[in-house]
Every structure is written in structure tokens, then in C-alpha cells.
């Protein structure tokens, strides 16, 4: 995603990347990584977790007409930390897992503070490599069924 030129111009590209990683992560993996954070901060809800649906859109082959792919469920919430009230952590994550949204919002808040490197190493990096692994696996699975069509040259003259 970060290779997208629009995102590179975007001053929030960095945040967009970690928000994306958190949004796509599996709930259990995020929970496991989140548990490794030492002393998670005290927080309060600015927006309680709520489950909704968003319409995903795409273009055939990435270039065709825009069309609606389908709806997906999304959970969102927002928190702020007791110690740093001007930092707001947002989460818009895939699925209906409220705990996942909470963990993602806290990570987003911490990533905006001086604890960025710690969170990046403990949460974002492992989730990102897991996501890469997942993609690779599905690509391999699809690749194994690939059929090459070819035609024998007919010996005609």
C-alpha cells in the first residue's frame, strides 16, 4: 500500500499504514501482540465501539469502472489516554470483534506518542509479516492450480 503514490504525498501515510495493518489483522493475532505491551495506558472512551457496515469499492483490474464489491462489517471506536488527553486513538477495523477495535485504538494512540518504536516492534511489525505470510500462502495455493494453455505447433506446410 505504501508504494501507492497518493499515499506517499499524504502526510499521514505513516499512520495510514499502521491503521491498515491493525484493521486487517486477525483478532487473535492482535490480541497476542497487544498482550506483549508492557503497562498498557489508562484510557477512556470517546466513542464506544460500534459495529457497522461499509461498502467496499474496486475497479476491475485496478483500471476499469468503479463498482461496489460488497459490504463488509467494520467496528469503530475512539479513545483518549488519561496521561495525554490531546492524543486521540481511532480504530476502524474489519469484523465485529470489539476487543480487537479496542486494542487497535490503544495502539493507534500509543503510536502517536514517544512509545511509537516499542509498539511498532511489538505489534505492527509482527502483524505485517503475518499478513505478508498470509498473502503469500493464498497466492501459492492459487499458483498451484495455475494451468498453462499452449498449442502444439501443427506440422503443416
Amino acid at each position: 500500500m505504501s508504494s501507492n503514490s497518493d499515499l506517499e504525498k499524504n502526510p499521514n501515510a505513516d499512520r495510514a499504514e499502521w491503521m491498515g495493518v491493525l484493521a486487517r489483522a486477525h483478532a487473535q493475532s492482535l490480541a497476542k501482540c497487544f498482550d506483549t505491551i508492557s503497562d498498557p495506558p489508562d484510557f477512556r472512551w470517546l466513542r464506544q465501539p460500534e459495529v457497522g457496515a461499509v461498502m467496499t469499492r474496486g475497479r476491475a483490474g485496478g483500471t476499469g469502472q468503479m463498482f461496489s464489491v460488497g459490504e463488509m462489517s467494520v467496528t469503530r471506536c475512539a479513545i483518549t489516554m488519561e496521561s495525554l488527553p490531546d492524543v486521540v486513538g481511532h480504530a476502524y477495523v474489519q469484523g465485529r470483534d470489539i476487543e480487537k477495535a479496542k486494542a487497535a485504538a490503544i495502539c493507534d494512540a500509543l503510536l502517536q506518542t514517544s512509545r511509537r518504536d516499542e509498539i511498532w516492534a511489538k505489534v505492527i511489525e509482527p502483524l505485517r509479516s503475518e499478513e505478508k505470510e498470509r498473502h503469500l500462502k493464498s497466492r501459492r495455493k492459487a499458483g498451484a492450480t495455475k494451468v498453462d494453455f499452449f498449442t502444439m505447433v501443427r506440422a503443416e506446410s
Partner: peptide, 12 residues
């Protein structure tokens, strides 16, 4: 800076 005041506890 202060906290953003929270909204309705049950928004709907």
C-alpha cells in the same frame, strides 16, 4: 489541553 468531552453513552 483538555479531554474532548464524551458524547451520548448510547449514541442512537
Amino acid at each position: 489541553m483538555t479531554h474532548i468531552a464524551t458524547g451520548f453513552s448510547q449514541p442512537v
